[in-house]
Design a protein around this nucleic acid. Structure first.
Lengths: 197, 197
DNA sequence: GAAAAAAAATGAACTAGTTTAAGACTTTTA
DNA sequence: TAAAAGTCTTAAACTAGTTCATTTTTTTTC
């Protein structure tokens, strides 16, 4: 039995934490929707009520909010193998404050709210999968929220490069600045300084 | 059937997300350990391998890391009704980088690593409980990590007061500075400025 | 309840990061 | 493939936040 590449990718991701029978895999895959997003297109915009949670099988997207001055505060870059979306809006049906924009042509698998809840009824061990997935994300966000408030911008940049060496080369300096939490001008200074060292 | 106050508190917390039978409640409570921590005593110190995850039934604790200069970077204040610990160390058995210190005489219920895993075998619906608990924590940490890098210290202070009005009065200004991510001196200036407004 | 220790306030000199502006370089689009 | 739009660099003037030092106030301890 062969799966297409995107399906292999998502099943491998899930089988890090739980085992699935062939039948369960089929059932699971049947609950997903394939989505393509062209470069510069939006997967989500502020005030949307988001209907899906997403798994990226190809490409790169940035998740961000806009402040009054129009500056982008980027909360994550999502590439192949990452999960993304706005969980708050997904769960509560409240409109989102986030934008999700493809920075490359991207392909995703989405699970709708209905199917997300159905999934737990049909294959209860997905509770375990999500329990562990959220637990791990939580660990890294706790760290990020601390570092954001205690490290200098230069230290955060060096850490980002170490933690996500593959992502650095796929995004613009401007977007990286939006993630690190500084202006593009200061990002430019930091990079030239760090490269000189 | 009556439960003691601390047991009522933790059961109510759990029953926000799942229903439990009397038997399940008894089973669950039997897996917990009661812990008391005197003011200024440590529940956890860097390099410990943490054996428990905690639920606070009384008191207040601060969770923090120390930097090279000895400054405390506080990641949370845990009061009655909150869950705390170091999930990374709890899960992986790696030594923690965190300190958890009681800022008031505190009482907690702890679940050991063994019992945590046993719990999922004995009462599988706890997977759901933790799935939702982690999901909600994740939502608020994502927000905090963004705000930490995009709001000014004054904005973060105002937001903290709005979000945790009861906690503000229980902690020192110095500790609040460690949470906001600034020096105690600048915290003092912000507070006097905001009060003047 | 006096002495000691810790927290809070204030101010002056400093540094990390912002703003504004302008020119060079790169990518996108027609 | 030329023009337009966006990105990157540099620099000068500025502001948010730090550091260090001192005094006052509050809390802890014996």
């Amino acid at each position: 039995m062969y799966y297409k590449e995107s399906h292999t990718l998502i099943l491998n991701n899930i089988e890090r934490f739980i085992d699935l029978t062939k039948l369960e895999k089929q059932k699971y895959l049947s609950l997903l929707t394939e989505i393509k997003v062209k470069k510069k297109a939006f997967l989500m915009q502020a005030n949307d009520v988001t209907k899906y949670e997403y798994f990226i099988t190809k490409g790169c997207l940035k998740v961000y909010t806009l402040d009054e001055d129009g500056a982008q505060h980027i909360s994550m870059f999502a590439v192949e193998g990452y999960w993304t979306g706005d969980m708050a809006s997904f769960m509560t049906k409240e409109p989102t404050r986030y934008f999700i924009k493809a920075t490359e042509h991207s392909e995703l698998l989405g699970i709708s709210r209905t199917n997300y809840h159905l999934l737990f009824q049909e294959i209860p061990k997905f509770e375990k999968f999500y329990r562990i997935l959220y637990q791990r994300s939580l660990i890294s966000y706790i760290q990020r929220s601390n570092h954001g408030m205690s490290l200098t911008a230069e230290e955060r940049y060096i850490e980002f490069k170490k933690k996500y060496p593959k992502i650095v080369n796929r995004i613009t300096q401007k977007d990286l600045a939006g993630y690190i939490g500084i202006t593009p001008e200061f990002m430019s200074k930091i990079i030239s300084k760090v490269n000189r060292m």
